[in-house]
Design a protein around this nucleic acid. Structure first.
Lengths: 166, 166
DNA sequence: GTATATTGGACTAAAATAGTCCTATATTAA
DNA sequence: TTAATATAGGACTATTTTAGTCCAATATAC
């Protein structure tokens, strides 16, 4: 249902990789080590750099590294960096002129949900993502029932919420 | 960052509308009352019908109504119905052959987050979404920082998490 | 100076989303 | 039985987003 994009998932893999590197790590190394295509890695590293999650050095011996400790980077940070601050509502902008406004009272609840989700995202750090006990394969669509089930079967690790509403 | 689709938002508006209708409500009425284009309303009502959230009657005097009490319909139900069970991971499928698997250890954390989010979604019912104290305009991208800020400014209702990571 | 890297942005291709429309079927009421 | 009203199902197009690639410019180390 809700989903993270493939690039965000790749980005997470890259960040996790960087938590394991002591020194500056060029994009080519990251690509080689993660198996993600170099152009894609370059693009992601640039994006992550702009958001301040990683820092870079140009030139020979240059590369990228985390700009703060893995423990201080949350899942929310990663999503903000890679999925952009594009959470703008169509009708909450400056020149808002939503023709549904008078009939609409559903938006508020999504705010409530938003807050809860944000909390969950702030609660998970990159350090936890690195945890080797999690042996899941690359996941880029995680937030749905089918995915949970499939991965339960695959890994038998999730103590997931069984979602069957009467 | 994470976002719900426009159609999901519309669908929520429609469901909220139906909570206020005692009798069968034809698509044309829903469209007229919500301001959403009729073809779109028809499409959404069909989808919601298939998922079992609403029930329908054909023919003259026919229409749609909720199939259970608003209190028994959760946000998770709505998302499952409208965004589909498309939460399938690229590399957790049957013929999984993810070339990153050996290098990837980031997937597990998303599961953790998934569980937390799912909890949040199960916790909000359609009855709460209907609450008239929520006077937000139609929202179809809610789960990001910018959106929260904008809507804070607009409504001053959210006691949101101020998200500034050091 | 040369090789190594990042930076920034343009660009294309692919996929998901949004929106529309048509035909078939069921129901009610006159 | 006919006419009017509605949903059911699906095909279809257009738009937008996402994914992925590439190039020229700039900075650094040796």
């Amino acid at each position: 249902m809700l989903r993270i994009s493939k690039l965000t998932d790749y980005g997470t893999v890259i960040l996790v990789h960087l938590t394991r590197q002591a020194r500056l790590c060029p994009a080519s190394d990251v690509a080689a080590d993660t198996g993600i295509a170099l152009p894609t890695v370059q693009k992601l590293l640039k994006t992550l750099g702009k958001s301040g999650l990683i820092e870079s050095a140009r030139g020979a011996e240059g590369g990228y590294r985390l700009s703060k400790a893995p423990h201080d980077i949350s899942a929310a940070d990663i999503l903000d960096a890679l999925e952009g601050p594009l959470a703008i509502t169509e009708c909450s902008g400056d020149d808002s002129s939503c023709e549904h406004e008078s009939n609409c009272s559903a938006g508020g609840a999504w705010q409530q949900i938003n807050t809860a989700i944000r909390k969950a995202l702030l609660d998970v750090s990159l350090a936890e993502m690195r945890n080797p006990s999690n042996e899941f394969p690359l996941v880029y669509r995680v937030l749905g029932e089918a995915g949970v089930q499939q991965q339960n079967e695959a890994s038998e690790l999730i103590t997931g919420i069984s979602k069957d509403n009467p």
